[in-house]
Computed example of a mutant assay.
Amino acid sequence: MSTHFSRYPDDDGPEQAPCGVWIGDASDLSSDWSRVDCKRCLKWKDTIMATHEAEESAIVQQMGDMAEFMKREVRQNIDRPWSEYPIGTKAHAVMGGHWLKTVHGWKWCTGSTFPTPGGDATSVTLPSPAGESQ
């Protein structure tokens, strides 16, 4: 029985170890390299760790990008009738998703257009003034 490296051994487990071996009932997983005895995992340790670090770095970068985006998107309370909001306004739903005001009405983020946003709209984001980038 071989013990393969796994970044997250407590998860349901991958079907394939990072070394390429398919995991079966006769395999164990560990995130502790001192417990890993798979020769392929040990041979590819530097590559496996570099890949893991690159994936983690990409996740952190994506989280930073999302945080920057959320900072730029200034939400405000609904303060007027829906018909008075300019085209490009987003109306945010309480449980996620949004409507976008278009010339034809309020388009839900998954595609359908309605005369007004739903009753669960809790805030709006006005479009940026012309010439101002987001």
Rank of each mutant, 00 (worst) to 15 (best):
Phe5Ser: 03
Phe5Asn: 01
Ser6Glu: 06
Arg7Met: 08
Tyr8Glu: 10
Asp12Ala: 12
Glu15Arg: 13
Glu15Gln: 12
Gln16Ala: 04
Ala17Gln: 01
Cys19Gln: 02
Val21His: 02
Trp22Gly: 08
Trp22His: 10
Ile23Thr: 00
Gly24His: 01
Asp25Ile: 01
Ser27Trp: 04
Ser27Ala: 11
Ser30Cys: 06
Ser31Tyr: 05
Ser31Trp: 03
Ser31Met: 09
Asp32Val: 07
Asp32Tyr: 07
Asp32Ile: 04
Trp33His: 11
Arg35Trp: 08
Arg35Asn: 15
Val36His: 09
Val36Gln: 10
Cys38Glu: 05
Cys41Ser: 01
Trp44Leu: 03
Trp44Met: 01
Lys45Thr: 03
Ile48Ser: 00
Ala50Lys: 06
Thr51Leu: 02
His52Asp: 09
Ala58Cys: 10
Ala58Pro: 03
Val60Met: 08
Gly64Thr: 03
Met66Lys: 15
Met66Trp: 07
Glu68Asn: 12
Lys71Leu: 14
Arg72Trp: 10
Glu73Thr: 15
Arg75Cys: 13
Asn77Gly: 14
Ile78Thr: 12
Arg80Val: 09
Arg80Thr: 14
Arg80Asn: 14
Pro81Leu: 10
Pro81Gln: 13
Pro81Ser: 14
Trp82Asp: 02
Trp82Thr: 00
Ser83Pro: 07
Pro86Ile: 05
Pro86Ser: 13
Ile87Asp: 10
Ile87Gly: 09
Ala93Val: 03
Met95Asp: 13
Met95Ile: 07
His98Val: 06
His98Gln: 13
Trp99Cys: 03
Leu100Asp: 08
Thr102Phe: 10
Val103Phe: 04
His104Phe: 05
Gly105Asn: 02
Trp106Arg: 02
Lys107Asn: 09
Lys107Phe: 00
Lys107Met: 13
Trp108Asn: 14
Trp108Gln: 13
Cys109Thr: 12
Cys109Ser: 15
Gly111Trp: 01
Ser112Gly: 12
Ser112Met: 11
Thr113Cys: 06
Thr116Phe: 05
Gly118Val: 04
Ala121His: 04
Thr122Tyr: 06
Val124His: 05
Leu126Met: 07
Ser128Met: 12
Ser128Asp: 11
Ser128Gly: 08
Ser128Tyr: 13
Gly131Asp: 08
Glu132Val: 13
Ser133Gly: 07
Ser133Asn: 11
